[in-house]
Amino acid sequence: MTVLFVNGKTIEADVEPDTPLLWALRENLGLTGTKYGCGVGQCGACTVHIDGQPTRSCSVTVADAVGKKIRTIEGLAENGVLHRVQQAWIDFDVPQCGYCQSGMIMAVAALLKETPQPTDKEIDAAITNICRCGTFQQVREAIHAASKA
C-alpha cells in the first residue's frame, strides 16, 4: 500500500510505485477530474499541484509524489466555496468541451498564487496547455478577471 496526501487527506492506494500519479489519481482514488490527454507531459490536461507547483501528473510517478501535498481539481474549492479561478471560468463561460479545463484551471490557479496580477506575457509563458476547441481568448479574459477578484 502506498500512502498519498491528496486534497488534505491521507489515503492508501494499492498501486505500483512506478505508476504515473495521473493513473493512481484516476483509477485508484477515483479522482477522475484530472484528465488523460497525452501521457507524455505535452498537453497539460492532467495538471495538478504538487507542493503548490503546477505539475503534469502523467509524468510523475507515485513514488515521487509520496510525502508531498497533492491537490487536484476536486480539492480546489475550499469549504464549499469555488476558487476564484473556477468562479471566473463560470462568469466568462470559458469551457467548450471542457476536457482540458481541469488542467487549465489548475495551471492558472498556480500562476495566480505565484503572480497575483500577471501580464499577458506572463500568462503566455505560464499557460502552455493544449485546448483543441480553442478557448484561449476566454481563458485570457478570465485570468485577468480572476487576478482582480
Binding site: L31, L82, P95, G98
Partner: peptide, 9 residues
C-alpha cells in the same frame, strides 16, 4: 453545462 466543467465533476 459549464459549472461541472470547472470542478472536475
Amino acid at each position: 453545462d459549464t459549472a461541472d466543467k470547472t470542478t472536475g465533476k
